[in-house]
Amino acid sequence: MSEENQVEEQPKPLVLEKLEANYADARLAQDASRGTVIIVIRKERAYAVLEYLKTDPELAYTFLVDVTAVDNSQMESELMQFDYARFMVVYQLYSYQGQCRLRVKVPVHENDLNIPSVTGLWKGANWLERETYDMFGINFEGHPDLRRILMPDDFEGHPLRKDYPLRGRGERERFNFDKQNA
């Protein structure tokens, strides 16, 4: 993720220019790979930047394509780059107006899993954030209904974390038939 290469290659995408002018303090890194601009922003400013990206009439990233996370605990290079933040929350945005994609990443530390919810900006964010909570345990603050969505309500753990084993964590052993019937 080097900024130098980016500047040399081609004129800077509008979104980077505008973010630099307005939210220089929010940016941690940026990149443009395979036609998509990628920006990494500070958690504290995430909501403000996403709101700006959506509402700015020139950018108009009105379509929130996806919200997900990546557990970087087994990816040393990523960990080192972002101050050992274990999780990276990834937002995929699309602008119908500019017909371009944007990937916004927000590093989240394991000791503070809170991140502001964007359900107020996009209605579709509701379930996407619920799934991210279900699978990674990221806590979206201000979410109206942060429950598990794919896993059962009484499930323990977050299956897409890297320390969660592929074949589950002893549900069968713990499953108490007598208790269930009582």
Binding site: V65, D66, Q92, W127, L128, L160
Partner: peptide, 14 residues
């Protein structure tokens, strides 16, 4: 390292 599937039906059902 990670594969995320963005399914259309998930958002339609929502």
């Amino acid at each position: 390292y990670r594969i995320r599937i963005r399914p259309p039906s998930f958002l339609h059902f929502q």
